[in-house]
Design a protein around this nucleic acid. Sequence first.
DNA 1: CAGGATTCATAATCTCAGCCTATTACTGTG
DNA 2: CACAGTAATAGGCTGAGATTATGAATCCTG
Lengths: 297, 297
Amino acid sequence: MNPDLRQIRAFVTVAQLGSFTRAASLLNVSQPALTVQIRNLEEALGVRLFDRNTRTVSLTRMGREFVPALQRILRDLDAIVAEARDVAALRHGIVRLAALPSFASGVLPEIIAQFREANPKISFVIHDVIASGVVAQVREEQVDLGLTGGRIVDPDFEVLHTTQDHMHVVYPVGHSFGDMEQVDVEALTLHPLILMHPATSVRSVVDAAFLAAGRLPIVAAEATYMSTAVGMVRAGLGAAILPGSAMEVRAEQTLRSRPVDDRRFTREISIIKKAERTLPPASESFAHTLIQTLQTA
Amino acid sequence: MNPDLRQIRAFVTVAQLGSFTRAASLLNVSQPALTVQIRNLEEALGVRLFDRNTRTVSLTRMGREFVPALQRILRDLDAIVAEARDVAALRHGIVRLAALPSFASGVLPEIIAQFREANPKISFVIHDVIASGVVAQVREEQVDLGLTGGRIVDPDFEVLHTTQDHMHVVYPVGHSFGDMEQVDVEALTLHPLILMHPATSVRSVVDAAFLAAGRLPIVAAEATYMSTAVGMVRAGLGAAILPGSAMEVRAEQTLRSRPVDDRRFTREISIIKKAERTLPPASESFAHTLIQTLQTA
DNA sequence: CAGGATTCATAATCTCAGCCTATTACTGTG
DNA sequence: CACAGTAATAGGCTGAGATTATGAATCCTG
């Protein structure tokens, strides 16, 4: 028969203490139980490990040679078990998530900071990629969670939460948008606009909204990055339409922003994970706080 | 509860095969047993290891991270068990023994060569030291076996075997010893002799024999090493009295040797081990062949 | 799209490994 | 030489874990 972890623990403990009785009390078993465990281990290995009479216990040479190796195995195993329990208790862990750049630079950093205050040992790996990239990385399980725009119908994914991300218009101080009762599609159509690049999810929403309203915007410029768009606004090229989730819509000294007064200028945001996949405890927990933060905000 | 080796083996096997059913048949248990083992392991670690539905099994990220570490532990442990069984089966091992130089260079090499023919993987560590050194090394357990002269009465030691080592006289071709009916104490007293150094056990035997006979030898020279004594004989300084066990008494071209014809020129040889100590299987086995060889010779 | 096949999970039952208590046997010590 | 302390043995019992039987879900196929 093959050795057993309890037998190995018994052996190492007896070897260290030099006594069956004391080892037994340390291991919370009776002394006869230990005697049997050691005997079984000796039979399993085919080698006598202790020379013992009724008064004294000492390792044989073979026993002495095996102690360090077995000790190391116990140590390694205990370390793995402790690691697993740390992961389970959120004392350790890595949250891997993919997010659209707008979220990655916008709402996410604050939420992560708040989460890490409660769980300081948990680290994050954020992949900021475009919408199709988020979906792909979740599908290939390079990340546990995805934060992306649009509605997900693929059964490969489970949508943990959806929320609305309303578009804002960003304009320089003194722009006429600042004085209007409401900035609706009509108003937007009258001014040169800076829009995101057509491949982005923000642009699809904007285009769809204009299309639904039967209007065409005056496109002054297109930008791939939101910070570029903001720079263009600052340079006076026009007003930018950017999602409310993005950091860039926050007030700068010389700029202002306000929501577009039209429900259609809204994109859906989904927090997704791969279907039928258990998240690591850290990611699971972070998903929860993420959802709660987005709900209350 | 703490993890169990069977649980770990089950986990690694299921992870490798990606199937409970196939893993179960490989491990010679029923599939429900495996299900329970994995569940218990997951509970012990506090972490879900597999995502499984009724058709498919796949590792979670946590599970994937634990596989290599646990695999290594199983590999290490199996190696230790295999090593122990090799030692038990004499497929491995080291025989440590201390012997008087006369044996170490005399009878021992042949016996070791013969033993290693049957057990090629067993190696030897020979300490050739004087009698008191042999006893000391056995007492301190630096060696398993001791081969020494004299009678051992100390209860710290167990005498596995005793045999007689009769003294021989070594002389040049043409010496008158070669023509005598018998070389007894009387004869020895008439010729210059080369004796071992007084600290050696050979010399004590020789001195005691002369004392008992009430004679005094003519000491031409004293040597610490037997090979030195033989060199002196070759140089014509006289005849040497050396133990029969020593290689040096074997015929050289220009030398002859014959037993001294007096029962008192005999020393006792003991094979000893520490009392109450189990020998490693290799040493145990070698002790047996050693005893048998000495008995039949 | 229905049904058979396959696979994991659950339930119920049972067996034996292993524990505990009580006792024995031995040894080192004062 | 008696006592104290320690490991080994015996006997009885309990529960962990195995098995078989069955259920539930999913995939494959015609």
